[in-house]
Design a protein around this nucleic acid. Structure first.
Lengths: 137, 137
DNA sequence: ATATTTACTTGCATTTTACAAGTACAAATA
DNA sequence: TATTTGTACTTGTAAAATGCAAGTAAATAT
């Protein structure tokens, strides 16, 4: 019925209890680099999340104020999802995961390579610029 | 029988397929800040991982060369686990998760607070020093 | 010789996930 | 206006992962 207690007060452990799974950061990645997404946009991602899992994750992330829902400007049947400040602040984590993954996995997409080249040139500046883009709505 | 194909070539997605769960980074955290751990040490952690899950995660992380097994200097019945270079390089990710978690969760343990104070003073230096400690074996 | 420690494995109930299909409302089309 | 399509979900169910308790085997301590 109600929320369980955290298994510890370690910030890493608490964070993992919220988004430590195979899908949450994929959703957040999409929002981070596409700015805003509809439900259908998430479903179209290459990783092919199933619709019930997507709905569950969106719900949890919204409840924990990592993302929020917005009305779509052109349509009442569409919903726009976007990152909150709390969600945007996950960017440094995504950047570091990207850098680690680039080092240990092959066939990185060109778009990602370009992005990471930019990151490596000046990480702080990349983060600042990306956040700035997300903040404008 | 054999390994499944990755769901995409996105480095974030690939990384999550390996350690995107509620336990892998807890194991890695323990190794990162305790340098070396036995099986029993992991079980003693506050988060109370169950023994079958621990065994499964250690196996996967070893297979993917994130951790490795060492003989215990004093005992043939003990096994020492330590991070490989690949594992050590997850430190920037753990640092960023820690910083995010510190911001959004309460009652952070004093040890962690002290560590994060050090991180915030000079992140690069903290990472360099922590890696240096881990490299000596 | 016996008991204890250590690193696991095994069995099973519960939970989570993945896949397929279905629903409800908005919007476009005939 | 009626019907089809698009969009955001929900529901059902089988398969897989998890959590808990107990068990095993080798090494060490007593």
């Amino acid at each position: 019925m109600s929320k369980d207690k955290n298994r510890s007060n370690c910030p890493i452990s608490c964070s993992l209890e919220l988004w430590g799974d195979k899908w949450s950061l994929i959703i957040i990645r999409d929002l981070m680099f596409a700015k805003q997404c509809t439900y259908g946009d998430f479903l179209k991602s290459e990783e092919k999340i199933s619709t019930n899992i997507l709905a569950a994750r969106l719900k949890t992330l919204e409840q924990h104020m990592v993302i929020e829902k917005l009305e779509h400007p052109n349509s009442k049947s569409k919903v726009l999802y976007k990152l909150t400040k709390k969600g945007i602040e996950l960017l440094p984590i995504l950047v570091e995961i990207n850098l680690w993954g680039e080092k240990y996995y092959a066939d990185i997409p060109d778009r990602t390579k370009a992005l990471l080249k930019d990151v490596k040139k000046d990480k702080k500046s990349f983060i600042r610029r990306t956040i700035k883009k997300l903040d404008i709505d």
